[in-house]
């Protein structure tokens, strides 16, 4: 972990309230599933964001403007500088993923899975991508996954595009390894429904983001673990979630 100074290259909407922030000039070298902490002007705590892409001196995150901090972030212009603490946390274990893992995302949860898909594709693997949204106008990044050469299934709750229903209902029950990120109810359903092993990236309200404050702890099979340090990616077997309804 180091602090890098990045410059905003682009900060533009992808869907209602969802923005892509492209940064350059820093030297962080994250792996898929890791996150970064951005220091926003006027905010005491840094804000954690999953890495969506990282290439040489460039870093991309996607965020939703949900509170005052992220709303202010959405108004920052290209050229502004942001101190970034990175890389943080423990990412996906690529060795466990196999040749054709299922990548399952709910909404903004696709962010770390894009970086994962890109890395897996470079290694010649064939991830199968399932993206869930509420409705057509919220859909984003499905084409970006296709551009990587991934097979992509889009699901919308209202059926306005893609397959109608929850993403958790669209998955092949073939025991494949899965990597998932999204709302906790979705992740819990996945753990219950999918027979295969998997890894899940959790979201948490964090303080420091580097393991000091114990703000983001979750209970696991190995005892209390910090989402920001031992996580955010945890093995399915580690999470103490019921596997049956």
């Amino acid at each position: 972990m180091e602090e890098f100074l990045y410059t905003i290259r682009e900060n533009r909407p992808l869907a209602p309230g969802v923005f892509r922030l492209s940064l350059s000039g820093g030297g962080a070298a994250p792996v898929p599933g890791q996150f970064v902490q951005l220091r926003l002007p006027g905010r005491f705590l840094r804000r954690p964001f999953s890495v969506c892409d990282a290439e040489e001196d460039r870093l991309t995150v996607i965020y939703k403007a949900v509170g005052r901090g992220t709303e202010e972030l959405s108004r920052l212009e290209p050229g502004a500088e942001l101190p970034v603490l990175a890389p943080l946390g423990t990412g996906f274990d690529l060795d466990r993923a196999g040749e054709t893992p299922l990548l399952v995302a709910g909404g903004l949860g696709l962010t770390p899975l894009y970086f994962l898909a890109k890395t897996l594709r470079r290694q010649g693997r064939e991830p199968r991508v399932f993206l869930g949204f509420n409705t057509e106008k919220e859909v984003f990044y499905d084409e970006a996954f296709r551009a990587l050469g991934c097979e992509v299934t889009v699901c919308t709750v209202d059926g306005s595009t893609g397959r109608q229903g929850l993403v958790t209902e669209a998955l092949p029950p073939d025991g494949s390894f899965f990597c998932a990120c999204g709302p906790e109810p979705m992740l819990r359903t996945l753990c219950r429904k999918l027979p295969g092993p998997g890894q899940l990236s959790l979201e948490a309200r964090m303080g420091c983001g580097f393991g000091a404050c114990m703000g983001c702890t979750v209970q696991t099979a190995s005892g209390p673990r910090r989402v920001c340090k031992e996580g955010p990616v945890f093995d399915k077997e580690e999470l103490l979630w019921p596997t049956q309804e």
Binding site: R205, G207, M214, G215, C216, T217, P224
Partner: peptide, 23 residues
């Protein structure tokens, strides 16, 4: 001690609020 349930951190003007609860 596990401490208190999460969320147990909140932002404040020029500071933060914690309710970690002695993990």
């Amino acid at each position: 001690r596990f401490g208190n349930p999460t969320p147990r951190i909140a932002e404040a003007p020029a500071g933060l609020i914690n309710a970690v609860g002695l993990q």
